[in-house]
Every structure is written in C-alpha cells, then in structure tokens.
C-alpha cells in the first residue's frame, strides 16, 4: 500500500534522510521510531506530499506522490504532531470542509459516528480556538478518518489525549488496519509501538537501522537477554558506536 524506494531528503548540506526504502502492506501497522532528528517527521511529511523528496520514489496505493499527487493524496490521511485547526471554524465546519475536499457525499452519518466515537458530540458547534489540545487532536483524527483513507500516517498521535482518548484512538487504529488500511505511527513511546504495531521501522540519523515485524525485533532481543525490552533494543541499535 505504501512503498518507499531510495528516498533521500537533503536541506542544503544537511542530509535529513538517506536511501530509505520500506513497504507498508495493507492491514499492517508500522511503528516508526528513532531519536530526535532521525528523519521520521521528514519521511511522513514527504509521504503526505507536504515536502518533495530530493531523490527516490514514494507511492501510496500505487500512485507516486510526486508524479500523481492528487490520486495519492486522495487515498491518504496525515495527522501531524501538533493539531492545526482553523480557529474560526466549528468542529462540524472542519468535517464539512474535509468532506468537500475528499468529495465524500452524504458524510453526515459517518461524521456523527466519529464525533460520538471520540466524544465530541457536545462540541459539534464549538469553534476550534475554544477546544483543548486533546480535543483539537481528536478533531484532526475525525477529519482524517472521514474519507476512509487507505493509508494513514500518524505523527506522535497520543500527545494531549486523555486515557479514554488514547484507548479510543488505539482501538480505531486497529479497526482501520483490520479493514485493510496501511498505518504508520511515528512515536517516541516505545510501549505504544510494542502494544499497537505489527511492524517496526527504526531510523537514526536519516537511515534505517531496522525494519521487520515486532516479533522479529523481539527475536533479536533474545540476544540481549530474556527480559530485555523494546527500549533496550532501541538503545542497543541507536547508541552503538558507528
């Protein structure tokens, strides 16, 4: 569903990502982890079509994000780390606009369902600037889900959510993946990755250090000891001498 081949991103002399290749099959949840500055957000933003890659080919559902951006973006949803909403629009206004962008006809029932799922029904007519950080995040997620995307990219999705919100989001991600969506979750919360994801992609200084299933990562952990955690695995790979 999501395929990245030889992706490279440079800013002047700085190489943010170099030679990254991976694939996210339909129905899988890939955890994207790495230290600060590893290139995770740069990768997600390139996949979302926000920034162009310097080199490489990024496709969503078979559509190249550079060559055929409209088709690729139509099948994609991106939820950034900081929920950015239009201050003067209501919650419903955001959903209405999103439905219009992705040409979702008769969106009302699905929008109502999402509002209920994320406990936003009472906030339906509240303007965005009056919402808390967590509620803004929930609105961004509802908008992202509205057009039933085939590929979903989350950048630090749990920030600001309350325990109920976290549980709802995790459940919804599992549901979407079970329905055939390819999901990528970038997070520093290794517990979340271990709990939620089927695959792991570990990045460091713009390069991929590990990619495979969580169980493959855990098999590697066996070398570290029986009670080693994903955290130990993370430090083992990212802090070893180069």
């Amino acid at each position: 569903m999501i395929r990245v081949e030889g992706y490279e991103k440079t800013y002047r002399e700085t190489v943010a990502v170099r030679g990254l290749s991976f694939e996210v099959p339909a129905g899988s949840i890939v955890g994207l982890v790495g230290p600060n500055g590893a290139g995770k957000t740069t990768t997600l933003r390139a996949l979302a079509g926000i920034i162009p890659p310097t080199r490489g080919r990024l496709t969503v559902a078979g559509h190249d994000i550079v060559q055929d951006p409209i088709a690729a973006k139509s099948r994609l949803a991106f939820i950034p780390d900081e929920p950015q909403l239009f201050d003067v629009l209501t919650v419903w206004g955001h959903l209405e606009f999103t439905a219009s962008v992705y040409r979702v006809s008769a969106f009302e029932a699905e929008a109502e369902r999402l509002l209920t799922q994320f406990e936003l029904t009472e906030k339906r007519d509240t303007i965005a600037q009056e919402l808390s950080r967590g509620m803004r995040q929930k609105v961004a997620i509802c908008c992202a889900y509205l057009h039933q995307p085939e590929a979903i990219l989350f950048d630090e999705p749990l920030t600001g959510l309350d325990p109920r919100g976290i549980r709802t989001l995790k459940e919804s991600i599992r549901e979407r993946a079970a329905a055939g969506a390819a999901v990528m979750v970038s997070s520093h919360l290794l517990d979340l990755i271990e709990d939620l994801c089927s695959h792991l992609l570990l990045m460091h200084r713009g390069q991929c250090l590990f990619q495979g299933t969580i169980s493959e990562a855990k098999n590697k952990l066996a070398e570290l000891g029986a009670d080693a955690s994903l955290e130990d695995f993370f430090f083992q790979l990212t802090e070893r001498p180069t």
């Binding site: 979302a48 951006p69 088709a71 973006k73 991106f78 239009f86 606009f97 961004a140």
Partner: peptide
C-alpha cells in the same frame, strides 16, 4: 499558509 492550512490543505488532493 497558516499552520492549519499546511496541515489540512497540503496533504489534501489539491493541485
């Protein structure tokens, strides 16, 4: 483009 426009419009299927 405001931050909200970048978040909503850039990843959306617009030319």
């Amino acid at each position: 483009f405001t931050a909200s426009e970048v978040a909503f419009l850039f990843p959306a299927p617009f030319q």
